[in-house]
């Protein structure tokens, strides 16, 4: 198989785009497509300071790398959740993030130590709350809260995450299965700042298949953590990914079409947010972040015994 751009041996075949590329042209394509998504969805400009949520995995390190190559002011945030699982998972993933930051001048990597700051790791909180079998919901809640807190406190205009198309489609699929209309209204490449405590969140890789971000990371020689979070085994989102990948195998482009059609339907007003849902938000009495709960937000309630 030959590269469609230059005729050199291809290293990847993107069946959904009917496009085979060599290593060099794939990198160029990947970086260009990222820039295209940033512009298309009006995510940010070169004047903005961007905070990249870095997990040490392939997607977030690739995102940080691409944003720096594109000349954006992108710093990193690593949230140490205190996960071991017999793999020293958090320790290893933090080391990958630090190693990347160490190779780049004038970038900053902030580290939030959850057990150090709040007294408990994610598995500790899950155990105390008797959710030790599946702490993913607690983990997600902590990460979202801390990312937002740091972005606002440090004056970043935008918080960027490495969510890829497979992530987005798996979430979309789950939300459609359960008709979670509120979640569907908020899902998209950009979640705008509300001016009252929520930073703007963007997903510049939302149109890339997971296989493409992995290929970019391998071709660039970025050292990322291969191991999965020990708690992700059996997660519902992974089961959704398996189902969707089977469909993609039989009909290339299914995932991309599903996601883009969803975004188009939203633009056409299929899922207009009601005014009532926006009015329900108010500041948490402890941290000040917006919540629909009457007094404390879900994050602050986590730390109450």
């Amino acid at each position: 198989m030959r590269c469609r751009k230059c005729g050199a041996p291809a290293v990847i075949n993107l069946r959904h785009h009917k496009l085979a590329l060599c290593a060099e042209d794939f990198q160029t394509w990947f970086v260009d497509q990222t820039q295209r998504s940033i512009r298309k969805y009006e995510m940010f400009t070169h004047d903005d300071r961007i905070l990249v949520a870095v997990s040490g995995g392939k997607d977030s390190l690739a995102l940080w790398d691409v944003l720096l190559r594109l000349g954006y002011q992108a710093d990193g945030l690593y949230i140490d959740l205190g996960i071991d699982g017999g793999l020293r998972y958090s320790e290893q993933s933090k080391a990958k993030a630090l190693a990347f930051a160490g190779q780049h001048d004038q970038v900053r990597l902030m580290v939030v130590d959850i057990p150090g700051r709040y007294g408990e790791s994610v598995p500790d909180v899950a155990r105390r709350r008797r959710q030790q079998q599946r702490p993913c919901a607690i983990c997600g809640l902590i990460k979202r809260h801390e990312m937002n807190r740091i972005a606002l406190a440090e004056g970043y205009q935008v918080l960027a995450t490495g969510h890829n198309l497979d992530d987005e489609v798996a979430v979309l699929f789950g939300n459609v299965l359960h008709w979670q209309v509120g979640y569907l209204q908020r899902q998209g490449p950009v979640l705008p700042a509300d001016g009252e405590g929520l930073a703007q969140k963007v997903k510049p890789f939302c149109r890339f298949y997971e296989r493409e971000t992995a290929a970019y990371t391998l071709i660039r020689g970025l050292d990322y953590i291969y191991e999965e979070c020990p708690f992700s085994l059996g997660a519902t989102s992974l089961k959704h990914k398996e189902t969707l990948t089977q469909l993609e195998h039989e009909a290339p482009g299914t995932k991309l079409h599903f996601y883009l059609s969803f975004l188009k339907a939203k633009r056409q007003g299929l899922l207009c947010p009601s005014e009532a849902s926006a009015e329900m938000l108010h500041p948490c009495q402890v941290c000040g972040q917006p919540t629909i709960a009457p007094a404390l937000c879900a994050f602050c309630r986590l730390w109450q015994s």
Binding site: M1, V11, A23, T213, T245
Partner: peptide, 22 residues
């Protein structure tokens, strides 16, 4: 990295990398 049509020969060192995460 190689595409699916590539021939693998005895003596090759082949690593398969999983791409699914999350």
């Amino acid at each position: 990295l190689v595409t699916e049509d590539q021939h693998l020969q005895p003596g090759d060192d082949v690593r398969i990398v999983a791409v699914v995460s999350g």
